[in-house]
Design a protein around this nucleic acid. Structure first.
Lengths: 135, 135
DNA sequence: CGGCATCCCGTTGGATACTG
DNA sequence: CAGTATCCAACGGGATGCCG
C-alpha cells in the first residue's frame, strides 16, 4: 500500500491529543451542529430560516443546538423586541474559524462519500455471501 | 482573536452539501472513531494495543468501531493464524486522507478548547444568576 | 488473544401540545 | 414567530459471559 505516501504528519495526534479532539468533536462534530454551522456560514439567519434550511431538524433539536452553540461562543443570538418577535443568529469569529476548520472534512466527505457507500455495500454483500454454507 | 479574518469561503456549503457532510460525519465524526483513527495514525496496531491507547473504550465499542471502519475501507484487518491469534489493524490510504482532513479540526479544537470551556462556564453562571429572583 | 451475544439502563431525539 | 414542556420510542454503550 503505497510506501511513498508521507503526507501524514505521522507523529502528531497522541492519545492525549485524541481525547482533546474527541471531547470537542462530541459537541461540535455532532450532526445537527454541523448542519446549523453550515447554514449560518453565509450570514445571519432567523430561527425559522435555519429550520427551513436544515430540513429534518425538529424545533427541539434546533433550539438545543443553538443554545449550546451560543453558550460555547460560536453563534450570537439577537432578539428584536418587535411583534411578532424576531431572532437572528449569526456566527461569531470563533464560529467562522470553526467553519474554516470544517472545510477540509467537508471536502473529504464530498470526495469520498461514494467510495465509502460502495465499500459498505460491497462488504455487506461479501459478508452475506460468506454466511452461506458451502454445501 | 484577529478581526482580520476573511478566509472563510462564504458561499460554499449549501443545504445539500450539509446533508452530505452530516451523513459522513455521523459515521466518521463519532467519538470512538476519531480516537481509533488517531491511535492508528502512527502505524498498525494489535487489537489490545488499540484498546490500551484508547483508554476507556469497551471491547464492544472497539469491535463495532473497527468493523465499521473496515467495511468503510478506512482500516484493514490482518489476521495471523497463530496461537494465540494475532490481529493487526492499519489505516488504508483512504484512512490516511481522512486523518489528514481531521488535522485542521484537531488544531482548531486544541486552540479553542479552553476558550469554549471558559465560555461555557461563564454563560452557565450567567444563566443561573438570571434565574434568581430580583429581590 | 480477539472477538461475539446478551442483558440492561441512561441518553438522544422525534412528535405533540402549550405560551409569550 | 420563537420558543418551552412533556411524553415516549429508539439507540448507544457498559458489564458480563461464552467461544475459537
Amino acid at each position: 500500500m503505497s510506501g511513498a505516501n508521507k503526507f501524514v504528519p505521522t507523529d502528531s495526534l497522541g492519545p492525549a491529543d485524541c481525547k482533546e479532539l474527541a471531547d470537542v468533536l462530541v459537541n461540535v462534530g455532532d450532526k445537527w451542529t454541523i448542519l446549523v454551522v453550515g447554514a449560518l456560514s453565509k450570514g445571519q439567519l432567523r430561527y425559522n430560516e435555519i429550520q427551513r434550511r436544515v430540513s429534518g431538524i425538529s424545533q427541539r433539536m434546533l433550539t438545543l443546538t443553538l443554545k449550546r452553540l451560543e453558550t460555547d461562543g460560536i453563534v450570537t443570538r439577537t432578539l428584536f423586541p418587535s411583534v411578532p418577535p424576531r431572532v437572528d443568529y449569526e456566527l461569531t469569529e470563533l464560529g467562522m474559524t470553526l467553519r474554516g476548520a470544517l472545510v477540509p472534512l467537508h471536502t473529504w466527505a464530498a470526495q469520498n462519500k461514494q467510495v465509502i457507500t460502495e465499500n459498505r455495500l460491497m462488504r455487506a454483500a461479501q459478508k452475506q455471501a460468506s454466511k452461506i454454507p458451502i454445501r
